[in-house]
Design a protein around this nucleic acid. Sequence first.
DNA 1: ATCGTGGCATA
DNA 2: GTATGCCACGATG
Length: 995
Amino acid sequence: MTTKSKQDHAIEQASAALSENVPVGKGSHVYLIDGSGYIFRAFHALPPLTRPSDGLPVGAVHGFCQMLWKLLRETKASEAPTHMGVIFDAGRETFRNQIYPQYKAQRPPPPEELIPQFPLIRDAVRAFNVACVELDGYEADDLIATYSRRAVDVGGDVTVVSSDKDLMQLVRPGVTMFDGMKSKRIGRDEVIEKFGVPPEKVVDVQSLAGDSVDNVPGVPGIGIKTAAELIAAYGDLDTLLARAGEIKQPKRREKLIEFAEQARISRSLVLLKDDVVLETAIDALGVRDPQVDALLGFLRMMEFNTLTKRIAEGLGAEAPPPLAVSVGASVRVSPQQVNLDVIEAGAPQDASPAAAVAAGAAIARAQAIDRSKYETVTTRARLEEWVRRAREAGRVAFDTETTDLSALDAELVGISLAVAPGEACYIPLGHTGPSGDLFGGDDNRPQQLAANEALALIGPLLEDPSVLKIGQNIKYDALVMKRRGIEIVSFDDTMLLSYALDGGRGQHGMDALAERHLGHMCMTFAQAMGHAPGAKKSDKTFAAMPLDKATEYAAEDADVTMRLWMALKPRLAAERMATVYETLERPLVPVIVGMEHAGIKVDRDILSRLSHAFAQRTVRLEEEINGLVGHKFNLGSPKQLGELLFDRLKLPGGKKTKSGQWETRANLLDDLAANEEIDGDARRLINTMLEWRQMTKLKSTYTDALPAYINAETGRIHTSYALGATTTGRLASSDPNLQNIPIRTKEGREIRTAFIADKGMQLISADYSQIELRVLAHVADIPQLKKAFAEGLDIHAMTASEMFGVPVKDMPSEVRRRAKAINFGIIYGISAFGLANQLSISREEASDYIKTYFQRFPGIRDYMDATKKQVHAHGHVETIFGRRIHYPEINTKNPSMRGFLERAAINAPIQGSAADIIRRAMIRMPAALVDAKLSSARMLLQVHDELVFEVADNEASALITTARRVMETAAEPALKLAVPIHVDAKAANNWDEAH
DNA sequence: ATCGTGGCATA
DNA sequence: GTATGCCACGATG
């Protein structure tokens, strides 16, 4: 699946048009449009306008499109363009800065709402199939002057589309200007009106008067009026300056003499260069017909409804698909449509991002959800009608119903669509009927469309980049469709929208979102199934649900998804989360789909052998324990073990859990076994118990459980990655969880040998080294940490050395271990209690460590204090890429909860930034593998700081090079960390040896 | 059958 | 001290 936007698609089509060379000569009419000037003027002169769906500011783009269309199609035949080009400024530095460094130096940066519109206007020009010209080192005005002279030289006519006074010097026989916003011609008379002199003397006047906006100095005390008088009297600037002594007014005379040179400099700034060496020949500006699809696609994407319609009519194309959102079944005009139509009609009104958010939420909730209104689609004609409506709307909410929660095992049962709030349908495809009988159930099978026939109609819609597909956790639906050979192109995901906007503020599942944003309780699966929760569920899949209930349930999901999109999407721009969503969330979906689809090969026999070995050891350990205790008890019951150890045997150091049970956690039992007060039998019992727990854990969670996940068709395990599940931005893996496969102990590690590469392939593991500590060094700006990473030192040893004054050389391992624990503690938002627990030391000792640490690294304390302040003041923290993590309960009165939330808030930017970095690497990886021609390579797994690949033997070393490069540069170009990022990578036949 | 708890595997 | 997911137990419906 690709995430290519509709614009991209439309623009590619447009650029594909052949450029047409038409010689300019007598009878030609060249239109030169001052693109840069227009943008600024349109922005300030026209009412603000934002795209309804997401609040993107598009006022200048809209005005520009309107103007361009008018020029192309609505000019009088005698003035119709034969050639046209839109000219832009390129870069800030031009030859004028060489002459006069202060030229345009004090210009403020463009307003924020204008910035996204620059690239959009270039897109618009390409969509209209009009030439787009810019040249480094020159202003648009110089290019316009050059083209203008060339055209006139060969007898052509020129219209300069601009109202900028700086261009008025170009007016002459054959050259006029045109104010694109007021639709007014500017000729010799209009120039005289403005400057008091004819066009050929405009430069002289401007040289004297100067220009405060562009920082052209001129002569102080002389404005346009005076300058015009003087030029009119003396003829031109040189004559005036030569005869300045003759001027009667003493002030004026002195200034002109004193600032004569400054006036000459000003002239060189004001005088446009008309002999620029062009890269685009004037003949290449020949007017070409717009590419209808591309242009209408662009306009529709911009959501310019009236303009789209008008231009479609003008091009004789099919009536344009409006983006009208009609609420309810009857055709009503939506608030959005009113909004835009009113604006397009020229009346100013509030179109701020905030207004777009309010409008979206209002439409989403305007009409209560009515399940009885949904249509069950069982005929080809009705399905065609729904597909048509989806295309017309330009967007469609879509949801699949299947037999299984696991997308790779799921069989498609039906599809629901929604084209507007309340307007939704369900297309049953694989219902077996209430009996659910696979053999004799054909009689019960309800009448429905054949899946292949329906998918032949729906597939092209899903693959059409100009129709936005809206899903809730669309990863699932994408996988289901991928297995049927259909790729979803152009999509949004309401779960991910919510995750980007409201990470930490509640769940992002559909039921929670519907309740939160729509005040609606979704129908539960059990309700739809018509059985009490508790009835046997396994034989009741969605396929057995009667069509009427299935329609209510499924179409409601699509309806709710569409409404959620309307409520959430406009918030993206308003809350400045569009970049997070568009660079870290949405593009990850197709990557994860590919990884889940790929799976990883697992050797069933190795697991089975291990399972057997663990079982035998478990039996022996069990016998030993029973012998020591003297009677049988349930070893798997922590409650019984606690009672045995602390009630019956009265061992020391017992602690109770919050529910009053004895605590028997491994590190507590470890400490107990090390306690010299206990006797040998008790010590043996405890150690044997610990070993028993390890064996049973490995067996039940891994060697016994994993084989059941091996897919019969692929022989591989396909985990599921949850995208909106964690608060920090990490992924979560489940069914099975492949992010917690053992590695620390010898026995556990053996499980990794069962994860293997396919024949002729290798597994490659590439993992970030100390990524979180590097992020910490960057965000908290710690000189010693930065230096240590820059020099590639052992970071924990360096920490120990700084803290305890021990040289790194021959450092005792215990000293390094403590420093390591402290470093991790820092990342986790350290407390004396936690550190004491981790290191089995007293709280006082732990507290001293922390004090020492902060003395040596005061920047860390500053960072922690700043983070706490931030989260208390704003209720959220941010990662280095702007992902926001909310802590709505941070100001709770409960001190222990408050402490917990503060530690979480300290950890979140570190863990979350590391998560963002690996996300960026993953998003870029597929294209990087293609670029490196690594056709055999596939990315299989992500384990927070590690990526696992499978690749043909002969491409393994090249893959290591590429993967490392992508991972190590993943933060760029958005950010350059203050520390280097290091990735270790290794190839082997199994995951154990590759790590 | 479902839930909370304790325990434990990973980064 | 951070972030997860899954197992068994044992109480509950």
